[in-house]
Computed example of a mutant assay.
Amino acid sequence: MRSSGFLYGLTALAKAGSAAYTLSDSYPTGLDFFNKFTFYTATDPTNGYVTFVDKSTAQSGGLIAAESDGSTYIGVDKTNVASGSGRKSVRLTSTASYTHGLFILDLAHMPGSVCGTWPAFWTVGSDWPNNGEIDIIEGVNLQTNDAMTLHTSDGCSINNSGFSGSLSTSNCYVNAAGQSSNAGCGINSASSSSYGSGFNSAGGGVYAMEWTGSYIRTFFFPRGSVPSDITSGSPNPSGWGTPAALFEGNCNIDSHFGAQQIVFDITFCGDWAGSVWSSSGCTGKASTCNDFVQNNPTAFDETYWRINSLKVYKSS
C-alpha cells in the first residue's frame, strides 16, 4: 500500500494540473436573466415564513428588475406588512441542468446580514437528497461568514484538510447520527467579507464552484482580488490557490451527485433562521422570527441579490 502522503501528493498534483475550462452557458443580464429560470410558487419546503410569487407578480411588485448598469435585481417585498404564508419573495430554479463543471457568479450585492433572512445560492438534483445538493452561498440572520455545505444520501463524508475555512460537520448524509437534522457536511468561510453585509461593504465579489468526479470545491474572491483568467473568460482553477471549501474524502462524488439545477432564493425564518432566533442576537427586535418579519418591511431594504454575471464552464 502506498503512503497517504504519496496519495495526497498525487491528488494535489491532479488538482494543480486540472485543465482550463471553456464556456458552456452564459446567463443574460437584466430582465432576460429570468427567461432561463422558472419561478417556484409552492409552499417553502424549509417551512419559511414566505410567499414565493410568480414572474408577473414579482415584476409588478418590484421584486425583480433590470438595473441601470445592466445587472439583475432579485429582492423581496420591503413595503408591506406581511400576511398569509409570509413575506413575498422569489425562488428561481434554472431550466437547464448540469453534470460537473465550473459555476462562476459575479455579485455586486447579496442579501445583507439581517434578522429573519435566509438567502441562498445553490444547486440541487432531483429526488433529493439522492442526487445531492451543493450550497455555495448561504446564511441566516446576522451571520457574517458564508456557510458552504453538501447534502447527500448515506455514505459520504469529507476530510478536514485542503481548504482555508473551518469544518463544522463532516458527514454529508442529511440524517447523519450526531449531527443536527439535515446539517450535511459544512465548511464556514474564513472571510468576514464572504457573506451578507460584509460582502456588500467590500464591493461584492466572485464565487466559483468547481464540481468534478473527484471533488467539489468553492472559491471566494473579493472584488479587488478576482483572478484575471476569470475576468478574461478563460478560468483555470489550478492557479487560484487554496479554496475556501474542499469537499473530498470518503465519498464517491458521482454516486451522490446527479444532474444539478441552479437555485437562487430568499426565505425567512423557517427551519434554520427561525430555529436559531433565540441565539442569533435578534431577540431584542421581536419575540419570534415570524413576528419580526411580518411587521417590519423596511428592515429588508438590503435583502436583495444584484447579479453582474452567471456563467457555467465545462472542462476542456
Rank of each mutant, 00 (worst) to 15 (best):
D301E: 12
A183G: 00
P119Q: 13
G162L: 02
P45H: 09
F6H: 12
G239K: 04
H100D: 05
N171G: 03
T117Y: 08
C251I: 00
G70W: 08
Y21S: 14
F6R: 10
S180F: 15
A42L: 15
A19Y: 04
G284Q: 10
W272H: 14
G233R: 13
I158R: 13
V53L: 11
G249F: 04
G30T: 05
S193L: 03
H151R: 12
V90A: 05
A108C: 00
T51C: 05
P119I: 03
S315G: 06
D135C: 08
D106L: 09
R91I: 02
N159C: 06
E210P: 10
S157H: 04
T242W: 00
D127S: 15
A66S: 12
F199P: 08
K285G: 14
K36W: 01
T79D: 02
E138G: 00
N130C: 10
S60L: 04
Q261W: 04
F103N: 09
G75P: 07
K78H: 10
T11E: 15
E133I: 01
T41I: 03
K311N: 14
N188W: 11
S4R: 14
P28M: 08
W211Y: 02
C269D: 08
D77S: 06
S26Q: 12
S232Q: 06
F163Q: 00
S214P: 01
S85N: 14
N175M: 14
D32W: 02
S168C: 06
V53M: 12
Y173Q: 11
L63T: 02
V206I: 08
S161G: 03
A245M: 03
A244C: 13
F221Y: 09
G112Y: 15
T298A: 14
G139N: 00
F247C: 07
W122Q: 03
P297H: 11
P119C: 10
I216S: 09
P222V: 02
S189K: 00
A96G: 06
G62V: 00
S113W: 07
L150W: 04
Y195H: 14
A177N: 07
D106S: 12
G233E: 11
P237E: 15
Q260N: 02
N145R: 15
Q179F: 10
S316K: 13
S180K: 03
G233I: 04
N160M: 05
Y40D: 09
H256D: 07
F121M: 10
I262E: 07
F247S: 03
G139E: 11
A65G: 06
A120G: 07
N175F: 04
E138F: 01
Q294K: 15
V263F: 14
I64K: 09
Q143S: 14
L142W: 14
Y73E: 01
S275K: 15
S168Q: 15
S225F: 03
A120M: 04
N296W: 15
F221S: 01
I137G: 05
A286Y: 14
G125H: 08
V174N: 11
F247P: 07
D77V: 07
S157F: 11
T231Y: 05
S170F: 00
G125P: 01
I64G: 04
T288S: 14
C269P: 06
G224P: 00
N296Y: 09
W118S: 13
W122G: 06
A20R: 10
N130S: 15
T72L: 01
A66W: 01
G62A: 08
G224C: 11
N290Y: 00
S164R: 09
S191R: 11
V90C: 05
